[in-house]
Design a protein around this nucleic acid. Structure first.
Lengths: 323, 323
DNA sequence: GTGAAAGCGCTAACAT
DNA sequence: ATGTTAGCGCTTTCAC
C-alpha cells in the first residue's frame, strides 16, 4: 500500500486550488487535494486571499438611477457578465442620483479595495466625475472636462443607420423629429441623419426637421404638421420610441397606413413599446449590454480612452423591407 | 504646549473608526485619530476587517433574469437600500436563468462568506432551491417543498383591492380577464376578485370571467365576447397591464369610452404602458422595492417565515373616482 | 517537488 | 484609558 498518507502542506493546497499559481505540483498531490476539497466542501476564503495577495479581484460599478430605469440595467448586466467571466466580482451600488449616496458608495468601494471603477449613467450625458485613486471608466456618460475615458453609444452612426434604413426602403423625403438640442443623443442622431443624406447625394429639406421633447404628444403635433406639408415626407425618423408612438397617432388620425403610406423608425428599442405597437416598430437599439461588457474590458485590459459603441438596427414592421 | 505627540496605538485607531466597538476612548484621542485619518485619506480595509472579525458584513443576492426584466429590478434596488442602510454590502449576481451560472454564483457567494442569501425570481413562481449552509430568503418565489421562507406579493389582496376599486366607483357587473391557471398570480388575483364580491354581498356571474394568456390579443378577444353579452359588464379587471391594453382596443372598436362606458383596471403597474395609454391606466402595483427591503430585514432580524407584501393601488384615469 | 514560516491589515483578548 | 500581542485564512518567499 504505497499510498502517501501525509497531509499535503498548506502551500500545495493553495497552489492546486489557485489556477493562476505558477508553482509546480505533482499530479498525485493535485488529485489528493481535489478529492479532499470536494469531500469537505472546501471553499477558499476570498477575503483572506485578497488580503494576502494584495489584490481584491473586485471591480466596482456605481450607477445613478440605472436600477430604476427599465433598460439601462443592461449596462449592469453586461458588466456583470464580463467580470464573472474573468473570475472577478462586481460590486454594484445604485445611487438613485443622490450625491451623498454617491460619496458613500465611492467610500465603500475604496474600503473594499476595488481595482477598477465603472461610473454609469441612466442616459447619455456629461457628468462631473469625482477623482478617486482608482482606475475609472465612464459608461453612458463622459467627463465634462474630458478627464476620463467614456464608453458611449454611437448616436451618430445610429442616426445614420436609421436614415439609411429608410433610404434603402425607397424613401426620399424623410421627416426627422429630434429631441431637444442639449442632449448628446439629439446632436448625434441629427448628425447621422445628415450624414446619410450626404452619402446618398440627397438634399436635406430643413422644413422636414422638427424638435420634440422626447414625449409622445410633442411628436404627434410635429407629425401632423409634417403630414400637412405640400410635399409631405413618406417616412419619419423619430429620435426615440415614445415620439414614434406619437407619430403613429398622428398618422392614424389622417387615415394613413404604416408602413405603406408613411414608414416610421424609432430609436432606443424600448421593447415594451416597440414590440407592442401595431404595426410593431422598427427601431435602433442602444447597446447597453455591450457597453457594460466593454467597460470591464477597458479596466482590465486598459482599452481605448473613448469608445463609441455601434447601435444596431432592430427591424420590425413599421418600415417596408427594401425591394 | 501639553500636546501629546505619541502616536495612538493600532487598537485605539480601530476602536475610534469602528462605530460598533465597545471600547472606551478618550475624546482627545478620538480627535487625533479622526484628524489623521482625514489627512491621510485612510479607509479601513474591509477584507482584513472581515477576516479578523470573522463576519463579512456581506449579503448575497442571486436572481434569475431579474436584471433583464424591466421592473423586477426594483427588488434589487430595495435590497440594496436596506443593506447599505445597515452598513452591509450586497453582492449581486443575476443568472439569466442558467442553472450552471446559478451554481457558480452560489459558489462565489460562499467564497465571499456571505452571511445571508436572497434568492429572487423575475416573476412570482415556485422554485426548487439549492440547499446552502447559509440563511436564505426567497423573494418573488417560494420553495416547492416549503423548505424556505418566501417574500411574495399579496396577489389576493391586490385582486380584492382592484375589484373593490371598481365596486367603489359604482360598478356592479365586473368582468375579469385572468391569466392561465398555473400561475400563483392568477389564482391569487381570482381569489381576491371573489373575496371582494363576497364582502360586498354581490353574486359572481361566472360568464364574466375569462382566461387569457397574459398578452394583449387574448384580452382583446375576451373583452369583445364580454361586451357582446346581453348584460355586459360595465367594468373590467384585467390580471395584467398588457391585457388591459388589449381590453382598451376591444372597447374602442365598439365605439365605447373609458372610463365612462367601461372602466378598466390593470395589474402590475408597468409604467411604460400604464402611464402612456390614453386614458392612463389605473392599476395595482407589485411592491418589488418593498419586497427587496424586507428580504434584508428578514435576514438580519430573522423575520417571519413567509411574508405577503401588500400591492398598492395606483389610481389613474381608467376608473372614475367614487362619487 | 515539498514543507516551514512570515505576514497581508485588521480586531479582540490581555496587560498595564 | 491605553499599549501589546496573537491570529483570522490565505499566498509567498525561502530553505530543503
Amino acid at each position: 500500500m504505497g499510498t502517501d498518507r501525509r497531509l499535503p502542506s498548506q502551500r500545495d493546497v493553495s497552489a492546486v486550488l489557485n489556477p493562476s499559481s505558477t508553482v509546480k505540483i505533482a499530479e498525485a498531490t493535485r488529485r489528493r487535494v481535489w478529492a479532499a476539497a470536494e469531500e469537505l466542501g472546501f471553499r477558499p476564503n476570498e477575503m483572506a486571499r485578497s488580503l494576502r495577495s494584495r489584490s481584491s479581484n473586485v471591480l466596482g460599478l456605481v450607477s445613478s438611477e440605472i436600477a430604476t430605469t427599465p433598460y439601462a440595467v443592461a449596462i449592469i448586466k453586461g458588466a456583470q457578465e464580463a467580470a464573472l467571466a474573468r473570475g472577478m466580482m462586481l460590486l454594484i451600488i445604485d445611487t438613485d442620483g443622490a450625491p451623498e449616496i454617491t460619496d458613500d458608495a465611492l467610500a465603500a468601494m475604496t474600503r473594499w479595495r476595488v481595482e477598477g471603477l465603472i461610473l454609469a449613467a441612466d442616459h447619455h450625458r456629461a457628468i462631473d466625475p469625482h477623482a478617486t485613486g482608482t482606475p475609472t471608466v465612464l459608461v453612458n456618460c463622459f467627463a465634462a472636462d474630458g478627464s476620463l475615458g467614456g464608453i458611449v453609444p454611437d448616436e451618430r452612426q445610429g442616426g445614420r443607420l436609421a436614415t439609411e434604413t429608410l433610404l434603402a426602403a425607397g424613401h426620399r423625403r424623410i421627416g426627422f423629429i429630434n429631441g431637444p438640442d442639449d442632449f448628446p443623443a439629439s446632436t448625434g442622431r441629427l448628425a447621422g441623419y445628415l450624414d446619410a443624406h450626404r452619402a446618398a447625394g440627397l438634399p436635406v429639406d430643413p422644413r422636414l426637421s422638427r424638435t420634440g421633447d422626447w414625449w409622445q404628444e410633442s411628436a404627434r403635433g410635429a407629425t401632423s404638421e409634417l403630414l400637412g406639408l405640400d410635399d409631405p415626407p413618406t417616412a419619419l425618423f423619430c429620435a426615440n420610441d415614445w415620439m414614434a408612438m406619437g407619430a403613429y397617432d398622428a398618422i392614424r388620425e389622417r387615415g394613413l397606413g404604416i408602413p405603406d403610406d408613411v414608414a416610421v423608425i424609432g430609436f432606443d428599442n424600448r421593447i415594451e413599446i416597440a414590440a407592442h405597437l401595431s404595426p410593431t416598430l422598427t427601431t435602433i437599439a442602444l447597446p447597453y449590454r455591450e457597453m457594460g461588457r466593454r467597460a470591464v474590458e477597458y479596466l482590465v485590459a486598459d482599452g481605448p480612452a473613448t469608445d463609441l459603441v455601434p447601435c444596431p438596427l432592430v427591424p420590425r414592421q413599421s418600415v417596408r423591407a427594401p425591394s
